[in-house]
Design a protein around this nucleic acid. Structure first.
Lengths: 231, 231
DNA sequence: ATTGGATTATTGGCTAGGCCACTGTGCCGC
DNA sequence: GCGGCACAGTGGCCTAGCCAATAATCCAAT
């Protein structure tokens, strides 16, 4: 299962339009109550059909960001088109599973490559990360920094700028799940143990073992809900 | 300004379609992973254009309720199409201003009508509600029940089954804002005072005074945020 | 001068119909 | 069997157009 990642999730046209509209609003310095260009003009300027523009407008409408008046135009409800903070959290939470799947695919492959390509310097950095994490835990902390440093070291050892970039693009959400995961009692120590197994496989130059260990690690870390506030 | 409410908010076709789809799913007993009928079939059975169906689908997609695969069909992500609880709260909060506007219009008119049509029995019930609320407050409670009973009594005295039904349709959200409002320090007592003024105007048979007093009351109650959890 | 009513352009709501792209399935030849 | 291929089903997107609500303007009547 040394498989690559799936191609990027197909992006709907209306999603791109939504994004363009957000940018347009901030770029033009529009604020609450300001009017958006007519559908027809948007369609023309973005070179898409009115139907696609309409789908984007529907999105903004259900998110409560714009106010659409039949025959009267479309108006901003807030200062911009950014999704409301609380709603954004809900949204992120909803997308978490997808992110974690991607992370599993990426990190597993990274571990495999790291086992093949690691240099002595890489191994030193990995060891340093392990020490960091242990020190943090012994100091009563969660070991967040050591955790991050470890995964960064493995990524560096894999020497795939492409995979590294993919990981970077979801780094923020990974950081959140890491934080949440390490907060669970006993998790920091067990995480450290899993890191050690991964490091051993990489040091031994055993790609399959490294991949397997990493997969197991990521999966256990993934078994966590991002936010705890379910009323 | 004894004016009635604005005509109902114009409902978009896609909103109706979303509603129909929700009902369809529960009615057919569909669950997670089940497939929805094709767009074309939905359009035909609901007698709307495919574009409108698509807009509804976009809504469900944005809310993370369905999974749409190009060329492969549409699949339920959850057990039903009900919006996620947390997201529902966000949504309700977003719509609160609208609800409170409606409440102001309705209750103001109800107070006016009550001042014209109240019977001795109505006045007795209103007085009973006031006593209830005072007793609750003296017992260290918020007076939620007395509050509700008071507004119910005024509504009954107005003898407009139509307005009463409108109020009922937003009763749940009014209850939330009431709860939240009365939690503020000093609010229960001041609310009771406002209730007394409204009751006096109704007893005196002064529609304009009753309407004004009710409007002021509802407006102060409205100045409250539904939920406090802004992280 | 102001109000009230038509007129017209603008703009969103919705439909019809069509082409293309992706997916899955089953058939056919090897 | 097994691999490739054709085909039907389905979503993605477009073009073109009509209808309905709004808003701006102008004119007439008070």
């Amino acid at each position: 299962m040394s498989e690559v990642l799936r191609p990027v999730r197909r992006q709907r046209l209306y999603e791109q339009v939504v994004e363009q509209l957000r940018q347009y609003v901030t770029q033009q310095g529009l604020g609450a109550g300001d009017r958006l260009p007519p559908e027809r003009e948007l369609a023309a300027r973005l070179d898409v059909s009115r139907a696609s523009v309409k789908q984007a407008i529907v999105v903004l409408e259900v998110q409560g960001l714009v106010d659409v008046r039949h025959g009267g135009g479309m108006y901003l409800r807030g200062a911009d088109l950014r999704i409301e903070p609380v709603a954004a959290l809900v949204d992120r939470k909803r997308r978490l599973p997808e992110v974690l799947e991607a992370r599993e695919a990426l990190e597993t492959k990274l571990a495999e490559l790291a086992a093949r390509r690691r240099t002595t310097a890489d191994l030193a950095e990995i060891d340093a990360a392990l020490s960091d994490m242990r020190a943090e835990i012994e100091a009563g902390q969660l070991g967040v920094d050591g955790d991050r440093r470890f995964h960064a070291a493995v990524t560096a050892a894999a020497r795939s700028s492409l995979l590294a970039q993919f990981i970077r693009s979801i780094a923020e959400q990974i950081a959140e799940s890491r934080q949440e995961s390490l907060r669970q009692p006993g998790r920091p120590l067990r995480s450290l143990g899993q890191h050690r197994r991964i490091a051993e496989a990489i040091r031994a130059g055993e790609p399959r073992a490294a991949a397997t260990a990493m997969r197991q690690h990521v999966r256990t870390v993934s078994r966590v809900r991002l936010l705890g506030w379910e009323p």
